[in-house]
């Protein structure tokens, strides 16, 4: 982005935004790389941590929930953290480094867990919701291998280590499966992306999906009264971490009584002025 912005005078004001999940031995090391990148590219850097946003680090979450469902917490918290970090920086566009392998994995995961809403939009290069900042994945069609080769030959300073908590069984299975598919036929990754672009959710199913609303506690977009992050955080704070993961645990949490007054909550989310769009806009891939 830096090279293209300079070479073609895009006129973009670039910022680096990094989320610190609080994983000792993984994120603390990678943040050192990020800080070097800041100096190398001379771009302002904002590091936003789970600890300052949610009051919990992933190390603390794993200590409470174990290694079984921790990716659920991390994924939900990171998505919000990126939007909140972008709002703090007052930017109007977030660009992430998701590659073709990531997209193909997401297509498979969304089918296997029945997440119709995300399945319908996960292959769009650009997405923008009414209450979220525009996001793009410019490496959507670039294989992980190609990106690694580019970084290697260009001698880029990058960090490449698997998260120490990543052996979450379900996603781990899907990732290993995708690697097997790629070994059997390298085009499998782009073929899955093509499949993801070639179908859509039926109109009658779309009509039954919950309307987007705003979380009554933190102001972030949500399909329920409480957003997923607030539900997860409430479960953590009240010592019932599975509350947002299973229906049974959620009922148990509700039966446990009303929300305590002193419950820690996520700061209220305000969209930067001038960034609100009129509706959800999935920007399509090439036809």
């Amino acid at each position: 982005m830096k090279t293209l912005n300079d070479r073609y005078h895009y006129g973009l004001e670039l910022f680096l935004l990094s989320i610190d999940e609080g994983i000792t031995g993984y994120r603390d090391d990678s943040l050192e790389t990020v800080k070097r990148n800041q100096r190398q590219y001379d771009i302002p850097l904002k590091i936003l941590s789970y600890d300052e946003l949610y009051g919990w680090t992933m190390d603390a979450i794993v200590a409470q929930v174990g290694k079984k469902n921790n990716c659920t917490f991390c994924g939900v918290f990171r998505r919000q953290a990126l939007d909140r970090g972008a709002a703090i920086l007052n930017v109007d566009h977030i660009v992430t480094g998701h590659n073709a392998d990531d997209i193909a994995e997401t297509v498979l995961m969304n089918i296997m867990r029945g997440d119709i809403a995300r399945l319908g939009r996960c292959t769009s290069i650009c997405t923008q919701g009414e209450d979220t900042i525009k996001r793009s994945k410019p490496f959507k069609y670039a294989y992980e291998k190609e990106i690694v080769m580019y970084a290697y030959f260009k001698k880029l300073d990058y960090f490449s280590t698997e998260c120490i908590y990543s052996p979450d069984a379900y996603r781990g299975h899907a990732r290993a499966f995708l690697k097997d598919l790629e070994a059997a036929r390298p085009s499998a990754i782009i073929d899955i992306i093509h499949s993801g672009e070639a179908f859509e959710v039926k109109e009658d199913i779309k009509a039954t999906q919950k309307a987007q609303q705003v979380c009554k506690r933190c102001g972030y977009m949500s399909s329920n009264e409480l957003c997923k992050a607030c539900t997860l955080l409430e479960g953590l704070e009240r010592g019932m971490a599975n509350a947002a993961i299973t229906d049974r645990a959620r009922k148990k949490l509700d039966a446990d009584g009303p929300v305590p007054d002193n419950l820690r909550t996520i700061p209220f989310f305000y969209m930067p002025p001038g960034l609100r769009s009129s509706s959800y806009i999935p920007v399509e891939a090439p036809p």
């Binding site: 499998a188 093509h194 499949s195 179908f199």
Partner: peptide
């Protein structure tokens, strides 16, 4: 899943 992995999403 096999069809989707071979590009038969349509």
């Amino acid at each position: 899943i096999s069809g989707i992995s071979q590009g038969a999403g349509f």
